[in-house]
Computed example of a mutant assay.
Amino acid sequence: MTHDIVQSATALPASPVDDRKKRMKAYSTAMSIRMICLILVFFVPGYWKVVFGIGAVVLPYVAVVLANVGAGGSSRPVNPGISQQLAIEQQRQE
């Protein structure tokens, strides 16, 4: 009875296309929030102008940082263990 080490696809990083889509979505979300902050600066009274103004100034930096953070090999390999011998292989050996 031989035991083979099983290969696992769960240890692979995200595909470049999926990674790019995720980063584009994060960038678009942050920039949409920035646009809302920029518009609200003209319509809200008092200290809220300062709060939304700071948001409009800081969010582009945050959006770029989020967009540039890729998968970066953050996944850890999973060791699924040793596979059992298949029933058809057992029949062939008998």
Rank of each mutant, 00 (worst) to 15 (best):
84 Q>F: 15
21 K>P: 00
9 A>F: 11
44 V>G: 01
82 I>Y: 15
35 M>G: 15
31 M>T: 08
84 Q>S: 15
81 G>S: 12
25 K>S: 09
67 A>C: 13
11 A>G: 15
47 Y>W: 08
50 V>A: 14
43 F>S: 03
48 W>R: 04
49 K>N: 05
54 I>D: 00
74 S>D: 08
63 A>S: 10
62 V>M: 09
41 V>H: 01
42 F>Y: 10
30 A>Y: 05
36 I>W: 10
11 A>E: 07
41 V>E: 07
31 M>C: 02
23 R>W: 00
59 L>Y: 03
59 L>G: 06
83 S>V: 10
24 M>G: 03
64 V>I: 11
41 V>S: 01
73 G>Y: 10
14 A>F: 01
70 G>P: 00
67 A>R: 07
10 T>E: 14
67 A>V: 02
67 A>K: 10
77 P>N: 14
29 T>C: 06
79 N>W: 14
39 I>Y: 09
66 L>Y: 07
56 A>N: 09
36 I>F: 12
11 A>V: 02
44 V>H: 00
13 P>R: 02
57 V>F: 14
68 N>A: 08
13 P>G: 03
13 P>T: 03
39 I>A: 14
77 P>A: 14
19 D>Y: 00
37 C>M: 09
42 F>N: 06
37 C>R: 03
48 W>V: 06
57 V>L: 15
39 I>E: 12
76 R>D: 06
50 V>Q: 07
51 V>C: 07
46 G>N: 04
10 T>P: 00
64 V>K: 15
82 I>F: 15
78 V>E: 12
78 V>A: 11
12 L>E: 06
64 V>M: 13
85 Q>M: 15
84 Q>H: 13
84 Q>L: 15
70 G>H: 04
31 M>A: 02
61 Y>E: 04
40 L>D: 11
73 G>C: 06
80 P>L: 14
28 S>L: 13
20 R>C: 04
78 V>W: 10
35 M>V: 11
32 S>Y: 07
55 G>R: 04
16 P>K: 01
63 A>K: 02
56 A>K: 09
53 G>D: 06
28 S>G: 13
62 V>D: 06
51 V>R: 00
77 P>C: 09
38 L>H: 13
20 R>T: 11
66 L>G: 08
28 S>I: 07
79 N>T: 08
54 I>C: 10
25 K>C: 09
77 P>H: 15
30 A>W: 03
66 L>K: 05
71 A>F: 05
34 R>T: 06
21 K>T: 10
36 I>V: 14
39 I>R: 09
44 V>Y: 00
53 G>F: 00
15 S>T: 13
80 P>I: 13
33 I>G: 05
54 I>H: 00
9 A>T: 13
74 S>M: 14
17 V>M: 09
36 I>S: 12
56 A>C: 11
27 Y>Q: 05
82 I>P: 05
63 A>N: 03
54 I>P: 01
79 N>A: 10
25 K>N: 08
29 T>S: 04
75 S>T: 12
24 M>A: 11
